[in-house]
Computed example of a mutant assay.
Amino acid sequence: MVDADGLSMWAVRQGEGPDVFLIAGLSDPAEAWQAQLDGLADRYRVTAFDNRGAGRTELSDEPLSVPMMADDAVALLRALGISSAHVAGFSGGSVIAQELALRHPDAVRSLVLMSTFARPDAYFRSMTGFWHWMVDQAPSERAMLEAFFLWVYTPRAHADGLVDRFVEETLAFPHPQSPEAFHRQLEAFEKHETLDRLAAITVPTLVLSGEIDIATPPRFGRAVAERIPRARFEILPGEAHQPFQEVPDVFNTRVDAFWREVDGR
């Protein structure tokens, strides 16, 4: 546990080298990044953490927002003595990363935005509206996870048993997210709006989208990349919302090459 400007936050750090700072998405604790903590620690000092309201980091009483979570992230960086880092975020974590780069640009060496968006559309709001209903109405936590994971993993992962493994791991996790925290995090992400501000991001940026991602389709990632000066946009063929978990070697190799290029400039 780390005292980050008065908020007690859970953080995990592995490896030595240039700092990499990983920001998880809706509901996910630091363990969502385990394949990156393990797979990149031979070249980087990798830090992952629990956002406010997820895992072991408490949910406070004040209204939750993406800017607040971005400020939490920079407070954690400072508490850990990290002046700047390669920042990578997925889904909700990617929008926190956008705000972090906008609000605290000196803390960000580069950006990797996986499964990202800058402005929710009608489809997105309908989808997240169903997620709110699903958390409250699902007959069990297992049923909720099985339904939710339809939105984020490939048919391949459902067929080969990977999703079943993730369900069991989530059910066994000793720090589950409360329904209240799920609703409040999701409401914060639904209000995210940076499309008209992204041009202010000046750090090297790589935007990645899964080809068959139905939660944040590639059109969202392309719109983000088009607004950030000199950002690169790439589609990962055959992948869905969370390729960093499904094909971690592919993801790790791509971001490593990007960070090596940035550090070599």
Rank of each mutant, 00 (worst) to 15 (best):
V2N: 01
V2F: 11
D3M: 08
L7V: 09
G15Q: 03
E16A: 10
E16L: 11
G17K: 07
P18V: 05
F21G: 02
L22H: 04
G25D: 06
L26Y: 04
A30K: 05
W33D: 11
Q36F: 12
A41Y: 09
R45Y: 09
F49M: 00
N51D: 05
G55C: 01
G55V: 00
G55A: 01
T57A: 01
E62H: 13
E62F: 05
P63V: 07
S65F: 09
D71Q: 09
D72L: 05
L76Q: 07
G81T: 01
H86Q: 06
S91P: 10
G93P: 03
G93L: 04
I96L: 04
Q98H: 00
E99G: 14
E99P: 15
E99W: 09
A101F: 07
H104A: 15
R109E: 14
R109F: 14
R109P: 14
S110D: 11
L111I: 11
L113V: 06
F117M: 09
A122C: 10
Y123W: 14
W133D: 11
V135C: 13
D136K: 02
Q137C: 14
Q137I: 15
Q137D: 15
S140Q: 01
S140V: 05
S140W: 00
E141T: 06
L145C: 06
E146A: 13
A147R: 00
A147W: 04
F148C: 13
H158P: 14
D160P: 07
D160H: 03
G161E: 00
V163I: 05
D164S: 14
D164P: 14
R165A: 02
F166P: 08
V167M: 05
E169L: 12
E169I: 12
A172S: 07
P174V: 11
Q185H: 06
Q185P: 04
L186H: 04
A188M: 04
H192T: 00
H192Y: 08
L195H: 04
L195M: 12
R197C: 01
T205Q: 03
V207F: 03
I212T: 09
D213E: 04
T216I: 09
T216Q: 10
R227H: 14
R227Y: 12
I228K: 00
I228C: 08
P229W: 10
R230C: 15
E234H: 15
I235M: 07
P243W: 05
F244P: 00
Q245S: 13
Q245F: 13
D249I: 11
V250D: 15
F251W: 09
N252E: 03
N252F: 12
N252G: 03
V255S: 12
A257G: 07
W259E: 10
D263T: 10
